[in-house]
């Protein structure tokens, strides 16, 4: 909790940015955890070793390309409060993304080769980093929260 209350970022938008960063770190950790859990539990095998090395490039290269040419899509975090309507809309969006990611994690659990699993996880990770760097808004935050909750819900109830 102390980290959230650092005196450096006392403005509300600064605090929001910090929370957003933390949320992306949590999602990254959860994705790594998912990869490890599926790897050990499903006893995945490496079908073709060379694919493991190339799996990340599938999504990392487009990500870097997009990040380098695209301007920031959102203006950044707002200073004041959100309206009730906005809160409701983004809460619903979060619930929707949670449901979607429960399903996506279920699909990931059906994969039986490590290299394809890695490619999938890194594709999601790239999406998260894209949101982190370009969509600095409540929209990005609700999507990232939805991804985190979707993975956790799958782990609790379906795994």
């Amino acid at each position: 909790m102390n980290v959230i209350k650092t005196p450096k970022n006392q403005t509300n938008s600064g605090k929001r940015e910090l929370l957003f960063t933390f949320q992306t770190i949590i999602v990254t950790a959860l994705l790594a955890f998912t990869a490890i859990a599926f790897f050990f539990y499903n006893q995945l095998t490496v079908v073709k070793g060379i694919k493991v090395i190339f799996a990340p490039f599938l999504s990392v290269v487009p990500l870097l390309f997009v990040l380098s040419i695209l301007r920031d899509l959102r203006k950044g975090f707002i200073e004041g409060n959100y309206t009730k309507k906005q809160i409701l809309r983004f809460a619903l969006l979060t619930v929707g993304i949670t449901a979607a990611f429960t399903a996506i994690t279920f699909l990931l659990s059906k994969i039986n080769a490590l290299e394809i699993l890695l490619a999938g996880i890194i594709a999601i990770l790239s999406t998260v980093f894209f949101l982190r760097s370009k969509i600095k808004d409540i929209l990005g935050m609700s999507i990232v929260t939805g991804i985190a909750e979707g993975i956790i819900v799958y782990m609790i109830f379906l795994f």
């Binding site: 959230i4 509300n12 605090k15 929001r16 929370l19 957003f20 933390f22 949320q23 949590i26 409060n81 959100y82 809160i87 983004f90 979060t94 409540i138 935050m141 609700s142 929260t145």
Partner: peptide, 8 residues
């Protein structure tokens, strides 16, 4: 974190 983000 999400709640804190909204209700700052």
């Amino acid at each position: 974190f999400f709640i804190r983000f909204i209700v700052i």
